[in-house]
């Protein structure tokens, strides 16, 4: 029997889903959550097959929450209005319901899920939505059992670590399951430069650039850390710093 979790900060919106779900007794509702933290915890503990997810929610939004879930289940987004998100959904989501929606539309989404429970599209969806304007200025990270919201201005540099990216700030370093190129796209180009295949640096932190072996350079950061600059990274760095 497929299981589901509802995540929406508006109680009435949850009521709505519960009411529409009465026509689908085959789906068991495991939990109703009102913010992303609660939702994340419930997903980890109860491992549902499907989540109904609102986008605009307290503290962390629906996309940010989803980023923190390992092996995310199928997702049906429920949202009122978000031009950008709609574009992303059309490309990658299992389905999305625009509030207010009818029972018929809801049934259609459920049937789609029942026919093809594993969409496998979520990772692609996240790569797209990470660029949505409302989350451009921060990155959400899971640090053991805590959730951290990092202001991108606090990032010193980011380096590749196997399939993860290690985000380094003055207060510590955190692993994030995003690719370097998707992070590079999210970070503002006027303050971050990808100086190497495996490294993105915050320009404000650079204190020195000196030659290293032939045709390669090292940048030194304010905290003393040295990072390699690749052959293709150097002209980018020159352009950004204007020398």
């Amino acid at each position: 029997m497929p299981t589901a979790i509802l995540i929406d900060d508006e109680p009435l919106a949850c009521e709505m889903v519960l009411e529409y779900l009465q026509r689908h007794p085959e789906i068991e509702v495991l939990a109703v959550c009102h913010d992303g933290f609660e939702g994340l915890k419930a997903i980890q503990q109860k491992k549902p097959d499907l989540i109904f997810l609102d986008i605009q929610m307290p503290r962390i939004n629906g996309f940010e929450m989803l980023e923190l879930v390992e092996n995310p289940p199928a997702v049906i987004f429920t949202t009122a209005f978000d031009e950008y998100a709609i574009k992303a959904f059309e490309l990658h989501a299992m389905d999305y319901l625009l509030k207010p929606y009818s029972q018929e539309r809801f049934d259609k989404a459920i049937n789609k899920f029942l026919q093809q429970p594993a969409s496998g599209k979520t990772p692609a969806l996240l790569e797209t939505t990470a660029l949505s304007p409302q989350q451009a200025d921060r990155i959400v990270i899971r640090d053991n059992s805590n959730i951290r919201i990092i202001n991108i201005n606090d990032i010193l540099y980011i380096e590749a670590a196997d399939d993860y990216a290690r985000i380094v700030t003055a207060s510590g370093s955190y692993l994030k399951n995003r690719t370097m190129s998707s992070l590079e796209k999210q970070l503002p180009g006027n303050s971050f430069v990808r100086i190497h295949r495996s490294c993105i640096v915050n320009i404000k932190e650079i204190t020195k650039i000196h030659p290293h072996e032939k045709e390669s350079y090292l940048v030194q950061l304010r905290n003393g850390k040295q990072l390699p600059v690749s052959k293709s990274g150097y002209p980018k760095l020159r352009e950004k710093l204007g020398f």
Binding site: L12, A13, M16, Q56, K99, P100
Partner: peptide, 16 residues
């Protein structure tokens, strides 16, 4: 729009 659609959704939830 966000406020409007969400309000309509709330009304929809209460109608029955």
């Amino acid at each position: 729009p966000h406020f409007l659609f969400n309000s309509l959704n709330s009304i929809n939830a209460m109608v029955v």
